[in-house]
Amino acid sequence: MKIAVCIKRVPDMDVRFKIAAIGNAVDEAGLKFDMNDFDSWAVEAALQIKDRDAATEVVIVSLGTDAVQETIRKALAMGADRGVELKTDHIPFDGLAIARALAAELKDGGYDLVLFGKQSADSSNGVVGAMVGELLGLPLVTAISKLEISGQKGSAKREIEGGQEFVEFPLPAVLTIDQGLNIARYPALKGIMAAKKKPLEVKPAQLGAQTVTVTQMELPPERAPGRIIGEGVAAVPELVRLLQTEAKVL
């Protein structure tokens, strides 16, 4: 079996972001970058298939600047076989442009499965995987939290509002991965050493026309700090009054 996993390099979300001087992008100074969490679960899903069938080839594809090589190497350290960097000078906001570039790379690759995280932590559009499925003309299942592949058929579970949905699909197929499918493995030093020697191909990304652009970015309004009214029973009347008059929740 041949599996492609498309991954994105995103900033670590545990920081406080600043907006860059140009006003429509995040200031990247001091940010730490790592593999998008949803994508790491997609890599893990592919590696679990490889664990069961050693003949499986897992190919990592990532679009971005040369910095994505570090992220691709991490996936290789986890156990993927080789990597492809689709090189651009920046990652565009337009999901369709990204999807076209990825589809161009994937279409003649002979992949049985193409896996994505269901969305990226930074732009959170959640469209690229679905668009690639459409561009490749393949069956598409999004946001899966359980996956089984047997032969040329697959079945998956999706968490939907108020319930669960079970779907079946033939291979080849495009899948996007939700939280809960698995826990991504931690790359061992042995894997990190081995990853340095694995092939990583660099190709120009065929992005084409970009129709959607970000014009401006703003931080959410500062939240007013909490207030301590008092302690114990004595503070209750004042609390009730404020909840009625100020917060207007009672």
Partner: peptide, 27 residues
Amino acid sequence: LMESRFPPEIQPAFESMERNGSPWAFN
């Protein structure tokens, strides 16, 4: 280092030390 075999609950600590420079996910 060889097998990535450890109690699953320490993986977030490893990842956080690497990303945030502390074993907890603080900014």
